[in-house]
Structure formats: structure tokens, C-alpha cells
């Protein structure tokens, strides 16, 4: 993408001919009055979405025949950029003649596809996908009004990235299954965050309920907890498959103490000595076990030679090849 990204300012070059034509000459722009609706023989529904202060706003007019729930006429008014106007126009075209239940199923992706000149080339550049989302939101609003229900009730899942319509559930699953660690990976796998980027982190164009950074952090934290739980469960039941290196510091300490109790302390105590573990640190490939001699071991000539080697070799053999024992 670098070559494509280096020289900016080309967003208009990426509009399809259909988008350009609709911007120049929208087909369904206009308004419907109460009188018009009566003449057409249906109920007038007027729905608003967006706000001028956010850069785009749309008003949708529907005339719905109450007997059949069919949208007999539709018009729009829009404050927005070319994509917003062309998307609203296309959305109206897609609504007309459908029942309200059918219309609610129209998504921004359907609208964008309908504006393509050829099936493989997007109708608008990525950062403009956002402008097509509103035309979908306003349909839900209108349908909600017609049915006397909340517009949100048409959405059965939580959509995190509206441009690409990626749900919270999908994101959580994909992160877990593929062990994703970065936002870039999430975008590569799901397309979430590839368009207007508002859903990546707070501070974008639009305020969101869920952000990819938080979802990633939460899922990663959950995965880490699961990993720890598995290790802990494995140790309790004696079925652990986790290696010493994979264990948490607390688990490492416990395990080390166990080995020392069983194989080392009895011999030291016989000679009137002992050791205590001070700390365990991961030092690149090594696992450093810091310990202190006690009793008769303090000052014993063998404490820095034979005894030390025996302790280290026992831990290496029982726990991990990379252990180093460092007396303090």
C-alpha cells in the first residue's frame, strides 16, 4: 500500500462513475408532504439521522401502504459530501417497492455494491465508506417509527465496525482463534478498522461504544487468564502439560520449593544448614534462582562449589535445563 499512500488527495479519483452521476444528478432527492402521502395512499414516515455538526445528516421520507407494509414512495434530503448524497439516493432506490421488513435488511454494504461500476472495484475510497453507513441507519430509524419499536431492535448483534459491518462476537472469536496480537492483524483478518478508522481507538471521527483496542486488550487478558487457569488446574490435578518456563513466577517458586524440600533440604539439614529462595527472575534464556545459605552452610567451603553445583544440577534435572542458581 505504500506506493498508493504516498501522494494524497485522490479521493475523488476513486469515486465510481455511478457515484459521480448520482452526486451531479440525484434521482430521488426531494420531499413528501402529508397531502402527497394521502394521495399516494399510505402513511407518511419521516426519519432523521446524523447532524450537520458532525458533517452529515439525512432525512428520509417514506409512504408505506399499511395493508401490505410496502414502501410505495420514498425521497431523501441530505446534508453531506458526494458519497453521502449518492448513498442516500441509492438507498432510496433500493427501498422502493420493498416491504418495511425487507428494507430493514438493506445494509451500507448493499448500497456501496449497488454504486459500483464493476463488481470488483469499490465505489468509494475506504475513508468514504463511513458516509454510506448513515443511509442504512436512517432506514432502521424509519422502520422503527413505522412499527412503533426502537430502531436498535433491528440489530440483533453489536456492530463494532459499521463501515465493514463486523460484529463484536466475530472480533472476539477471530482474535482468540488466530491468536491475534495487533490492530493491524485484526484489520487484515476482518476488515474492521480499514475504512473510517473511528472504531480503532477513541478520538476518531465518531464516538463509539466499543473500540478495537479495548476489545483486543480484553480478549488478550481473557486468553491470558485462561492460560494461567489451565496451568494451575494442571498442577493441581497432576496433569499439567505446561513446562517450568511457561509457569507464572508464583508457580515457579512453589515448584522450586517442592524440589528443594524433597531432594536438597534433607541433606543440608543433616549437616546443620539450610537455604531459602530469595527470588526467581527470567534473564533472557536463563531462569535465575537467587538463594541464601543459612546455618552451617554459611561460610562452608563447599557452598560455592560442590553444594552449589549439586543444588543447581538437581533443579536443572527436575525443572529446567536453563536454571542458574545464584547465591547471595
Amino acid at each position: 500500500m505504500a506506493f498508493e499512500d504516498l501522494i494524497g488527495g485522490s479521493i475523488w479519483d476513486e469515486y465510481s462513475q455511478k457515484v459521480q452521476d448520482l452526486m451531479n444528478n440525484p434521482q430521488n432527492q426531494g420531499e413528501i408532504t402529508e397531502e402527497d402521502a394521502e394521495r399516494i395512499g399510505g402513511k407518511l414516515i419521516v426519519a432523521d439521522f446524523g447532524a450537520e455538526s458532525c458533517g452529515d445528516a439525512v432525512r428520509l421520507y417514506w409512504v408505506v401502504e399499511e395493508k401490505t407494509n410496502i414502501i410505495k414512495e420514498a425521497k431523501f434530503k441530505s446534508f453531506g459530501c458526494g458519497t453521502a448524497i449518492a448513498s442516500s439516493d441509492t438507498m432510496i432506490q433500493l427501498c422502493k417497492g420493498k416491504t418495511v421488513d425487507e428494507a430493514v435488511k438493506i445494509t451500507n454494504i448493499d448500497v456501496e455494491h449497488a454504486m459500483r461500476d464493476n463488481p470488483d472495484t469499490p465505489a468509494v475510497p475506504p475513508q468514504k465508506m463511513h458516509c454510506s453507513v448513515m443511509s442504512y441507519d436512517v432506514i432502521k430509524k424509519a422502520a422503527g417509527q413505522y412499527k412503533g419499536v426502537d430502531a436498535e431492535s433491528f440489530e440483533t448483534e453489536i456492530i463494532v465496525c459499521e463501515c465493514a459491518r463486523v460484529t463484536l462476537g466475530t472480533l472476539q472469536e477471530v482474535i482468540k482463534l488466530n491468536d491475534l496480537k495487533t490492530i493491524e492483524q485484526i484489520t487484515d483478518y476482518t476488515k474492521a478498522g480499514a475504512f473510517c478508522k473511528s472504531c480503532i481507538r477513541p478520538g476518531g471521527h465518531e464516538e463509539k461504544e466499543y473500540y478495537l483496542v479495548d476489545i483486543l486488550a480484553d480478549v488478550r487478558a481473557e486468553m491470558e487468564q485462561e492460560r494461567l487457569k489451565n496451568i494451575a488446574d494442571g498442577i493441581v490435578t497432576g496433569t499439567t502439560t505446561a513446562t517450568f518456563a511457561d509457569m507464572t513466577i508464583v508457580q515457579k517458586l512453589k515448584k522450586t520449593e517442592e524440589v528443594i524440600d524433597e531432594f536438597i533440604r534433607p541433606m543440608l539439614i543433616m549437616d546443620g544448614g539450610n537455604i531459602e529462595i530469595i527470588d526467581i527472575k527470567q534473564e533472557r534464556a536463563n531462569i535465575d534462582v537467587y538463594m541464601r545459605y543459612m546455618g552451617a552452610c554459611v561460610g562452608c567451603a563447599s557452598s560455592s562449589t560442590g553444594t552449589l553445583f549439586a543444588i543447581e544440577n538437581t533443579l536443572k534435572e527436575k525443572l529446567d535445563e536453563n536454571i542458574r542458581v545464584l547465591p547471595i
Partner: peptide, 18 residues
Amino acid sequence: RAISSSYAYTPKNHKSEL
């Protein structure tokens, strides 16, 4: 402005949310 929602017709019983 003819296309704009800012200048759009609002029916009597519709409370504008724009």
C-alpha cells in the same frame, strides 16, 4: 440547498432530530 436536509420540509407532527 435544494438537496440539503437543513432546508427540508418538516411535517407538522414530525419532531425534527437534525
